[in-house]
Computed example of a mutant assay.
Amino acid sequence: MPPEVTTIDAAAASGQSEDRRRLEAGLDRLQTDQEHRPSRWRAFWTSVVPPVLFVLFLLLVWQLYIMLADPRPDRAPSPAAVFAALAEGWESGRVQLAVSTSLERGIVGFLIAIVVGTPIGLLLAEVSVLRRAIGPVISGLQVLPSVAWVPAAIIWFGLTDATVYFVILMGAIPSIVNGLIAGVEQVPPQLRRVGQVLGANRWQLATAVILPAALPGYIAGLKQGWAFSWRSLMAAEIIATGGSIGFGLGSMLQQSRELADLAGVLATILLILFIGILIELLFFGPLERRVLRGRGLLLSGGSR
């Protein structure tokens, strides 16, 4: 073989080897970037500190308004008066009882809504005839204010916990169903074909292929479902009082209103708001970021 040919072959082999090394380095770098996770302190700083600072800013504006405008205390109580009402409720045990009762009802009702709404959402997403027939009804139920169900629920179930749970379910299930349907509609058709090629039946295709692929939309539906659950719970507890219904945050809010205690009303509202923010920061926020990061839709710093 002529030496020129040997030299050319060696150069080509060297170039291919160099290209291979660059490709491997690029893949390693890509894998490293995907596996990189922010520290817990950084995650805390980016997710918890900003809303806390914003709340402190609002409290400062509130206090400045009280100092400058000097309104009537029964019309605009100061932050100190509100926190004093909250401390008084804590010392008497009313705050702990109300929070534990409402959280238990909200979480249990939400879990039941997930168990009921998930198969309904999968069924409607996979069976187009049912979706066309029932889908508009589900959307209508989602728009219907949950408080509208309270009078009917009281007539059906009386002043019992069943009334509260029924209102929660009617508020949360439509959101979960519509969220899952929206997530399924965004699943690429190629995934369905792959599952069919691998021999998956209709049930396996829905649970092992479609549902995991639809997780982002499903989680969005769960977040909205929890929001509707919490709002429905408060509406039911405010209206349905007495009987065997326990003392929740809605009852505490209504009781403060009957006593014309605006500081107590605002303290209860802040409690309800705080619990909603806490659930978002501790559960839904990390869950959503984990799912999006696993799909490469979220950078290591937590931004898209």
Rank of each mutant, 00 (worst) to 15 (best):
A263L: 07
I277N: 06
T160K: 02
A236M: 00
V137W: 12
L292Y: 03
L23T: 14
L215G: 08
Q190A: 15
E104D: 05
L59N: 10
I176C: 12
L198D: 13
I275E: 00
L124D: 08
S100N: 10
P189Q: 02
F83I: 11
L53F: 08
L278E: 00
D19L: 14
L253W: 02
L287M: 07
E91N: 04
P286S: 12
I107P: 12
G117K: 08
A213Y: 02
P286D: 11
V187C: 12
I279E: 10
Q224W: 06
A12S: 05
E280F: 03
L103V: 15
L270F: 13
Y218A: 15
A11Q: 13
M252N: 01
I275W: 03
G243K: 01
S244G: 04
A162W: 03
M170R: 01
I279N: 04
V164S: 00
E258D: 06
V48D: 01
S244M: 01
L287P: 04
E185G: 12
E288T: 11
V150G: 07
I134D: 12
L253E: 02
S17V: 02
S100T: 13
V197W: 10
A172K: 06
T6R: 15
W45V: 15
V164G: 05
R22Y: 14
A87G: 13
N178E: 12
L169H: 03
V49E: 08
Q16N: 14
L249M: 05
L144F: 15
A220V: 03
P189V: 11
D28H: 11
T6S: 15
R193S: 12
R105E: 02
R21A: 15
L281E: 04
S300L: 00
M252G: 05
D74G: 01
L271W: 10
L253V: 01
D261N: 14
L271M: 13
S232W: 04
R231P: 03
A11W: 12
G242N: 08
I120K: 08
R40K: 13
R94P: 07
L292Q: 06
R21Y: 11
F110G: 08
P51G: 02
F110T: 05
E237K: 00
V5L: 14
P151L: 02
R20M: 09
V147H: 06
L64H: 08
P3L: 13
W149F: 08
Q224K: 09
M67H: 11
I210N: 01
V115F: 15
G221Q: 06
L27T: 09
P50H: 05
T32C: 05
T6W: 11
Q204W: 06
R290G: 11
P77N: 08
L53S: 03
P51S: 04
L23V: 12
K223G: 05
V115G: 14
L249V: 05
F274W: 02
I245L: 02
A113P: 04
R37C: 06
Q31K: 13
A213D: 04
